[in-house]
Design a binder for these strands. Structure first.
Length: 212
DNA sequence: CGACCGATCGTCT
DNA sequence: GACGATCGGTCGA
């Protein structure tokens, strides 16, 4: 089928600079295609997790468990885990095999399949909460833990580039959300989002940061 | 506004 | 047995 976007290739994910990739992902499309049913969202907000030296990362200190083993896969795979027993958080694994870099997708703006997203999220009307926050991203796009380890160079779940022009948009770097346990690493500016975008998550914390 | 709380369960200790 | 890379709601000032 012909589309007005093209899927990102493996080489995009294999690079070493997880911060650069996290920033570049802002403005790209996150696409899910389940049995021919498509929904897509524009990535508004991301967070980078910088491998074994990052106290906020599940892979800190080289920790390798059945859950975190996905993070050690080659770049261009999905890392999906259950948070608080409720939310399926979607990450993009980057870098080469055995270097556990990951990027959490924290917010999307619906582009295609809005009605489907409303159905998935049980929302009668679309307000700005749809796709805002990492749990809501997965809910809107139908991503679940069964997609953990999925190949992002396949046809089910992937990132795409369309004609979206990022030159005019202002991307802010801020500390990450909900990682206070990481001590000094919680202060690192590893979160990237479009300034003033209504779907940016953690609005209260974000506002405080912007006014500081 | 801000503080707090309940939901809910896989994962690791 | 404790605890989340969350969310949406309530309650009181």
């Amino acid at each position: 089928m012909e589309r007005n976007w093209h899927k990102l290739e493996r080489s995009f994910y294999l690079r070493d600079d997880v911060l650069a990739i996290a920033r570049e992902l802002v403005g790209k499309l996150l696409v899910t295609e389940f049995q021919g049913v498509i929904s897509t969202g524009r990535i508004i907000e991301t967070e980078a997790y910088n491998g074994i030296i990052d106290k906020a990362s599940h892979a800190y200190g080289g920790k390798r468990t059945p859950r975190t083993s996905t993070m050690y896969m080659e770049g261009g795979h999905g890392y999906v885990y259950l948070c608080y027993g409720i939310h399926h958080l979607f990450n993009i694994v980057t870098n080469i095999k055995d270097i556990p870099h990951a990027i959490l997708i924290r917010a999307i703006e619906p582009v295609d399949g809005l009605e489907l997203m409303q159905f998935r999220t049980s929302k009668k009307i679309t307000d700005h909460s749809l796709g805002s926050g990492p749990g809501n991203v997965s809910k809107a796009l139908g991503i679940e833990t069964l997609h953990d380890g999925i190949n992002l160079c396949g046809d089910t779940l992937y990132i795409a580039e369309d004609g979206y022009n990022t030159e005019g948009i202002h991307i802010i770097a801020s500390p990450r959300i909900g990682v206070d346990y990481a001590g000094v690493d919680a202060l690192l500016p590893y979160r990237f989002f479009i300034r003033d975008h209504p779907r940016v998550s953690a609005k209260k914390t974000t506002r405080k940061f912007l006014c500081s």
